[in-house]
Design a protein around this nucleic acid. Sequence first.
DNA 1: ATCTAACCTATACATAGGTGTGGTTCGCTG
DNA 2: CAGCGAACCACACCTATGTATAGGTTAGAT
Lengths: 218, 218
Amino acid sequence: MPDARKLQKEPPGPVVFIIDDDLSMREALTDLFRSMKFDAEAFESATAFMETANFNRPGCILLDVRLPGVSGLDFQTQLERIGCQMPIVFMTGFGDIPMSVRAMKAGAVDFLTKPFKDQDILDAVAAAMERDAARRRQSAQSEAVASLAGSLTPREREVMEAVVKGLMNKQIAYELGISEVTVKLHRGNVMRKMEVRSVAELVRKTEMLGEGERPPVS
Amino acid sequence: MPDARKLQKEPPGPVVFIIDDDLSMREALTDLFRSMKFDAEAFESATAFMETANFNRPGCILLDVRLPGVSGLDFQTQLERIGCQMPIVFMTGFGDIPMSVRAMKAGAVDFLTKPFKDQDILDAVAAAMERDAARRRQSAQSEAVASLAGSLTPREREVMEAVVKGLMNKQIAYELGISEVTVKLHRGNVMRKMEVRSVAELVRKTEMLGEGERPPVS
DNA sequence: ATCTAACCTATACATAGGTGTGGTTCGCTG
DNA sequence: CAGCGAACCACACCTATGTATAGGTTAGAT
């Protein structure tokens, strides 16, 4: 991750990224959200957003379906693929049902038809922020665990997996072809490095490992 | 559960419940699904469905949005409230975007606009069946665990909770105000009744307890 | 060549967990 | 009241786990 420093320095306040080709809409929305507690940044196109925005910030995206270049729906797919998990609220003046259904199936928070009331978009953004915060909590937890697990040696990892499977030391020893004392040694290291003091805690921590991750890019 | 016997006797094949006030549509869909591997049952209205259908069967619901009496969307809410978790595929000839979004947010599998191609509804139903099967697997597992846990005495349950928290026997003994030997006794009973042979397994089983349930009705 | 990390082993002791036998008490129910 | 199940305790015995000490080998880095 080459831009880790940049991410660290970002302000923690949630931001609303507005992507719409209509200038007056961008201004209206920017004003609206700044009048609330939120940061707001507006972009004219998907490419402008991709070039400028830091999409690892806490926040959400307000996305117009009809954009110059790629459509909002395709852009949603694109964001998904590069690992941007920011919740998306769609807006459209000329939409149809299949479009909205596709967006919702792909995980959109809401799909608003223009014109909408201020309250509608505020509610949608609130829901999106809530979803983002939840995902972020989950993700932070699982990264913390992954970081601990990263300090394990390969052997310790094997032992840990066997322990959470419920195997006894002697079984682990047999399976790995080593002596029971060595298993105890590794096991002790695992407990220390994973910062747990019981098998129960260890099981719960390891269960968070296969969940919150999404490889950034390839 | 007064109708448990009835549920047991139902055939296991997945069924498509079709709810549409248009007779020709009902017939066409019934024929279509019967020509595939599915059972199909058609209803003219939501009330007819509620009176006749066994909605604990594996299957899904094809629901027209515009119905005599309650709307399809309200009916969705209603089903949710009474604990019917069958996946719903909406169909409509006269829908709008907010309608489809509301349905999708409430968990609908799909929202098709009439006229649709056979393949569209077949795909949607396949997805719905898949979702139902997944939910059913999950639910069956968690019921099996709940059943095991149901055979525990109150004290054994307390001990189990303490064990999965990672407490040691002596801590459990202190917290419950009993001796350590008694804790061991209860603990042994817990392991036997829950059909596990390690704390790791026990933790995993208990983690399935607060998930798959939904009280049928009040 | 030396150092280090990762891996392995052994002995020894301490603590934790599991099982069995036997017995007490209480409250409920036939 | 007798029987039963739940909950409790104790003693004894065994197994499993944890920790510490004191080593050993190997592969890769300095």
